[in-house]
Nucleic acid binder design. Structure first.
Length: 895
RNA sequence: GGGCUCAUAGCUCAGUUGGUUAGAGCGUUGCGUUGACAUCGCAAAGGUCUGAGGUUCAAGUCCUCAUGGGCCCACCA
């Protein structure tokens, strides 16, 4: 058998095996009626994306799930793809053309879009390449892009279909406007951030008596130029009599009325509110209600427009300063108060959002939300951890209509066309053609003078179709011959199994996919939603470029290996908790990979190849094996059973840590050490091989590369480990009694080592020790005694503890967990030190006994606690007493 | 304003449905290793489980409040 290098070299193996998997087409999933489907659709990263720790975590979890279910015999499909990320991508390309001193407006729409496509061709594969470095077993021949032609037909179908159902409408409303990106945004795209601002108190003169004023408070004084009323609460005694009176808006000298409205909070500010219906959602509502004038004072780029009089062309913030100065000069600024507020910011460029009145397209969400609420309430879709259910429901139950039109160029063009001829007719929908196919003429008047809506759709309006649009729904873009197959695939894999994602996009994406799935597939898009935590730095801050606290996954892969990255990430990811990372954290994964490597190396160095034939295992009967082999087999299957449970309930960290502990401690520290001196024994050969082989399979989903490499060195001619069956749970090999016996042995050995270390016994030998009593189970320990004797004869303890033997007359007594171990040691020990140690232990035992006695003399405990608990406590007490007795004997003997 | 979440060893974190003197990794200290692995082994030290109440025979675990982190939502002029 070939000898392995001393240290695992991830760089040397990873790319090779990834290519191998792809060559063998092992990631491909296709309908197989004999198997149950398991499908995950990837949260498509932005084409502009560069792999960060969040991606690494997200995709490692998905890959573990997919590999696990694939090995369990399910037909596994992981659907990959990227998102065209409208605004983000457009911004990136705009930056790149800016280097050539170009603006997209100079290029024109068509040229610019061409430029984006060529950018995508050149750089759009970056994130995909990086996902491959991570080991992701995606079905790459299905790679989708949300701007694919086929995908576009799904988007059109959905838009038109919702329009026909009356769920899409166009209208003038206040929306979130980003003056930098110059587009409308949905509410979700304009998250609120705390802001230290000011409250400005402005004096508006009364028309009748210009020396009297009404003072209004505002955080955005520049909007005063668009004021068309001042509102007060009709119950407010201070202002009641002023309702109906006229005011003059300074600087623009506009005459406005004081209106009464219950919405006004008399306690805030001065109790009088300036009303700017075109620049504030509340004011908008008031404007509608009171039939006010809507005056827009801003250009789309944030400069003030012709309605702003002298302030025209000034930037909104410059205008604010100018207005404040002018008001002050005119004695119309009462005061400025510092005021903390929160306001929307563009999620792409972080520019302060401007509430802006404009004509946009909206989706009516109420009717779509209803079944999506039901599906979750009835448990058809489950969130893990559960608490996100509440977050989801809360949002869904208060859902607002969704603004879906964007004034950018990169995206799905809205499938709406206008007829210039008909547009002159009176009713509002005249000349509006909503169509799946590009029309050549107006169906109303036959005119060919038509043009398409300039806007594109929100990126999420395509992402929300991901679980079925990736299967080519609605199929009409496919050639006739391929439709049937596509339908079968959708039918087979939909609903998908699990969605794995981060909490940030529950509203953006998860909730909307549930709605679109129920609306268009008439079924949920996935059964389980696993929400993992956010990756943070060691101080709890979110990792971000601007904070400079990024740990680059590629750097970790380069330094420690992909498996190390994956294992470390997973082992620290408790269900749904945020992940705090520092670079050192990855050492654990690297060390573990190296441990697996070296244990395998050791086994291969000592393994006679005759034993690697699987069928040999069948010839060994369980009861022919010695206790050590039976123990490790029992541990193996106990651990696999537990790991199955953990994986099935999304407890990835628990599974990872369990497997880690088993391999490192049970298998390497104890088992391999115990059999070392007898390693050529046929049973030992067989079992060490078998355990390694099974372990490699179960750790494979976590650490795909190293396991594949070792697998092939073990089996020069076999197939990939990734398509080996997941170990069948041999429950008949699980023997808890054996596990208990062995752990008693380990406790004993540990105690001896401890003693040796503490009492500074010189490195000689420990000879002929015996274990001969049991208080818990006499029989159990009797049989243990036999085994211990065997072990002792084989000098196995000596090997395990790496100690030499103490040759000396006399004896040493050790009492542990009811086992009395006699070790002949007298003459080597420092009697006084020994006695001190025993006496310390006696003190400890005494206080434990006291605690137990107190507990058992508590009538309430004895009466009310379950009988088995009480019994257990009684047994423990008698054990303790027995232990005390032995300890005292030992102590007395040391006088 | 509403809600979520966290607080356990020097550090980073586990801790199942409450069951009885709390675990891991890293770090520290001591010992060891010429035969798998110094990316190693053996052992030790280190905890009033943030605080105050409560429920219970029994609380790190459940409830209430407080303190201090982190996060989300909201039409906070």
């Amino acid at each position: 058998m070939s000898e392995l290098p001393k240290i695992y070299n991830s760089k040397e193996v990873e790319d090779r095996w990834y290519a191998f998997w792809q060559e063998k087409n092992l990631f491909h999933g296709k309908p197989d009626p004999a198997k149950a489907p398991f499908c995950i659709v990837i949260p498509p990263p932005n084409v502009t994306g560069i792999l960060h720790m969040g991606h690494a975590l997200n995709n490692t979890i998905q890959d573990i799930l997919v590999r696990y279910h694939r090995m369990k015999g399910q037909e596994a499909l992981w659907m990959p793809g990227t998102d065209h990320a409208g605004i983000a991508t457009q911004n990136v390309v705009e930056k790149s053309i800016a280097k050539e001193n170009l603006k997209r407006q100079d290029m024109g729409r068509e040229k610019f879009i061409e430029r984006v496509w060529s950018w995508k061709e050149e750089y759009g594969q970056t994130i995909i390449r990086q996902l491959k470095k991570l080991g992701s077993s995606c079905d790459w021949e299905r790679l989708r892009f949300t701007m694919d032609q086929d995908y576009s037909s799904a988007v059109k179908e959905v838009f038109v279909s919702l329009y026909e159902k009356g769920l899409i409408y166009q209208g003038n409303y206040i929306i979130n406007w980003c003056p930098r990106c110059q587009t409308a945004l949905s509410d979700e795209e304009a998250p609120h951030q705390q802001l230290q601002g000011n409250l400005f108190f402005l004096k508006y003169p009364l028309k009748e008596s210009p020396t009297d004023f009404v003072v209004v408070a505002t955080t955005r004084p520049e909007t005063m130029l668009g004021d068309t009323a001042v509102a007060v609460n009709p119950k407010d005694k201070r202002y009641k009599k002023l309702i109906g009176k006229k005011l003059i808006v300074p600087l623009v000298n506009r005459e406005i009325e004081i209106i009464g409205d219950e919405m006004v909070d008399a306690k805030f500010g001065t109790g009088a509110v300036k009303v700017t219906p075109a620049h504030d959602p509340n004011d908008y509502a008031m404007g509608k209600k009171h039939n006010l004038q809507f005056i827009t004072i801003m250009f789309p780029d944030g400069r003030l427009n012709e309605n702003a009089a002298a302030y025209k062309n000034m930037d909104r913030f410059k205008a604010r300063e100018a207005i404040i100065k002018d008001m002050k000069d005119q004695g119309l600024l009462e005061k400025i108060q510092p005021h903390e507020l929160s306001a929307g910011h563009c999620y792409r460029c972080h520019t302060l959002i401007e509430p802006y009145l404009s004509k946009q397209w909206f989706v009516k969400m109420g009717p779509l939300a209803k079944p999506a609420i039901e599906a979750v309430k009835k448990g058809k879709i489950k969130f893990h951890p559960k608490r996100w259910t509440k977050v989801y429901l809360n949002w869904m139950e208060n859902i607002q209509d969704w603004c879906i039109s964007r004034q950018i160029w990169w995206g799905h063009r809205i499938p709406v066309y206008y007829c210039k001829t008909c547009a002159e007719k009176p009713h509002p929908a005249a000349g509006v053609i909503v169509s799946r196919k590009q029309p050549t003429h107006c169906p109303g008047c036959g005119s060919s003078d038509i043009y398409q809506d300039e806007d594109v759709l929100d990126t999420w309006f395509s992402s929300w179709l991901w679980p079925f649009a990736t299967f080519y729904w609605p199929f009409d873009s496919l050639p006739e011959g391929k439709r049937q197959q596509a339908k079968q695939e959708l039918d087979y894999f939909y609903p998908t199994s699990v969605l794995v994602t981060a909490p940030e996009i529950i509203f953006f994406w998860v909730a909307r996919m549930i709605m679109s799935g129920l609306e268009f597939m008439k079924d949920i898009p996935f059964k389980d939603v696993y929400i993992h935590g956010t990756v943070r730095d060691s101080e709890g801050k979110k990792m971000s470029k601007s904070l400079g606290n990024i740990i680059d996954p590629l750097e970790i892969i380069n330094e420690y290996g992909t498996d190390a990255l994956r294992f470390s990430l997973i082992s620290i990811t408790a269900q749904g908790q945020d992940v705090y990372l520092s670079k050192e954290r990855f050492e654990q994964g690297r060390n573990f990979a190296n441990k697996i490597w070296n244990a395998s190396r050791f086994i291969m160095m000592n393994l006679d190849t005759a034993y690697i034939k699987e069928d040999l295992c069948a010839h060994v009967k369980k009861n022919e094996l010695d206790i050590v082999n039976r123990w490790i087999l029992s541990r193996l299957y106990s651990v696999i059973r537990e790991a199955n449970k953990n994986l099935d309930s999304f407890k990835f960290n628990e599974a990872a840590n369990l497997l880690y502990g088993f391999f490192w401690h049970d298998f390497c520290d104890w088992y391999l050490e115990l059999i070392k001196t007898d390693i050529k024994d046929p049973h030992n050969q067989l079992i060490m091989y078998k355990v390694l082989e099974k372990f490699l399979r179960v750790i494979h989903p976590f650490m795909p590369f190293i396991t594949e490499e070792i697998w092939h060195r073990l089996h020069p001619a076999t197939e990939s480990i990734m398509i080996q069956p997941w170990p069948h749970l041999q429950t008949n090999l699980i023997d808890k009694k054996i596990e208990e016996k062995m752990s008693a042995v380990f406790v004993a050995v540990t105690a001896i080592r401890n003693l040796r270390a503490e009492l500074e016994i010189p490195l000689t030998s420990i000879l002929n020790f015996k274990v001969f009593t049991s208080l818990v189970e006499q029989k159990l320990f009797q049989s243990l005694a036999t085994h211990i004797e065997t072990i002792s004869k084989n000098k196995l303890i000596g090997t395990a503890s790496q100690a030499e033997y103490i040759h000396s007359p006399g004896q040493f007594d050790l009492v542990l967990n009811g086992a009395h171990i006699v070790i002949p040691l007298s003459g080597v020990l420092d009697t006084q030190k020994h006695k001190n140690k025993i006496d310390t232990e006696i003190q400890k035992t005494l206080s434990e006994i006291k605690a137990k006695e107190n507990l058992l003399s508590n009538e309430n405990f004895v009466k009310r606690a379950p009988q088995d608990i009480v019994e257990k406590e009684k047994i423990k007490l008698s054990e303790l007493n027995e232990k005390l007795k032995k300890q005292k004997e030992v102590s007395d003997g040391l006088q």
